[in-house]
Simulated assay, not measured.
Amino acid sequence: MQVIDRIELYHVTAPLPAPFAPSWMPGTIRNSVTFYLVRFITDDGVEGWSAFTGAGRERVGLGHMLADLFLGQDPEDIDKLSERIHIMAVGGNFNWWIEPAFWDIKAKNAGLPLYKLLGGTDDRLRLYASSGELREPPARRDEAEKRLSEGFDTMKIRVHDWDEKVDIEHISDVAKHMQGRMKISVDCNQAFRLTAKGDAPMWSLDRAKRFADAAADVGLAWVEEPLFGEWHEEMAKLTAYSRVPIAGGELHLMGYHELARMIKMRCYNIYQPDTMWTGGVKQSLDIAKLCHEEGVEFSSHTWTNGFGFIINAHVFAASGFAKDMVFEYPLNEPGWVPEARDAIIKEPFMHDKGWFNMPQTPGLGFEIDHDKLARYGKCFFTASRKEVHWMPETMADMG
């Protein structure tokens, strides 16, 4: 039986070409893409990779836990490995982002791209351009025109102002400017509060209703996360009220069971779980299956890094929704661009005139650029079935 023989953990910080101010983190300016990278290697040399966003040193103690739980295990026993990730969650460590690395190994063993192993047949995904920053109306109009010229037929913008009239003005201006040439959606970033460096408004149900009315009046494609993520009852009321589809679901750490409750409550019209947060590949596909059964829509969230993008692309391509729904493509020039987001991946995941061509190589479908990994990354933990090595001398370089 093939077993996991070795684990490596890296902390990676790669520069962005320009500062990036994410709308969901008020007061924050990012100059790099930062993440934790895991590499599982089997006793016969098959590698599985995954990575998850990280602000600093918050995951440096993860190695010993991974070694105890996964060394010597069968990498294809996804149910057992998922149970062990859940054991970590019970202890307060939510690490569903690890699970796709096992699928990477399983698909490589099968000689198939992951989405084909999962039963997917959609080789091309229609994309929507997903912006990440707040912008004034003239700049937003220019951005929309540029995305349209590149082949995108849908773009998602951001709003996050204290004054709801400003938010309504922003969606109305760009929607009217595009005059039906492009679909516009909006992310309100109300489902979670990342206010460590700057405060932000917290919308009430009444404010969300007024915003949904304005969005419907100008023909928006959907309104994303206009209420706090734990307000399930209020979400259901808003969705029942709204004339425009309401979307969300990216960061529900309880995974399938919480989202299944929300689906049955009709909290949203469109469910957007992110595999890296909401239970891994298996649970994400279970969510997609339930969406089919309940007659609601599904389209994965992807705003993390290149690993999160491609893993969610495999899930979406296997979900059965790819023929009718659009898939998120993060793009916010000049700071957040594919070449920087995918810094240690040999071939960045570029769009093709608003479409994405799924990789056809086995597994997740990418190669690590080991020269760039050595330049931007620090290996701080390695373990095999014979020895464990934690490297504290690298910690000063991990901030």
Rank of each mutant, 00 (worst) to 15 (best):
I7E: 00
E8T: 13
H11A: 14
H11L: 13
L16Y: 06
L16Q: 04
A18P: 02
G27V: 11
F40R: 01
D43H: 13
D44A: 14
D44L: 14
T53I: 05
G54A: 15
E58N: 11
L66W: 10
L66C: 08
Q73H: 09
P75W: 03
E76H: 12
D77R: 12
D77N: 15
E83P: 00
E83I: 03
R84G: 03
I85S: 07
W96V: 00
I98L: 15
P100S: 13
L112Y: 06
L114Q: 03
L117S: 01
L118C: 01
L118D: 00
D123K: 09
R135L: 09
E136V: 06
A139S: 12
R140V: 05
R141V: 07
E145R: 04
G151M: 11
I157N: 00
H160N: 12
E164I: 11
D167L: 11
I171C: 03
D173W: 04
Q179L: 11
G180Y: 10
S185D: 11
A191D: 04
L194E: 08
L194D: 05
K209I: 02
K209D: 02
R210A: 14
L227Y: 12
L227H: 12
E233G: 13
L238P: 03
Y241S: 00
V244D: 10
H252R: 10
H252I: 02
M265S: 11
M265K: 13
I270Y: 14
P273R: 02
D274L: 02
D274W: 09
T275E: 07
G295A: 07
S300T: 12
W303Y: 12
A318H: 01
S319G: 03
G320R: 06
F321P: 06
F321N: 03
D324T: 15
N332R: 01
P338N: 02
R341Q: 05
G354L: 05
Q360E: 11
P362Q: 08
P362I: 08
G363T: 13
L364H: 07
G365A: 07
A374F: 12
Y376V: 15
G377M: 01
S384Q: 14
S384D: 15
R385L: 14
V388Q: 03
H389Y: 06
H389W: 04
M391V: 08
P392G: 05
T394C: 09
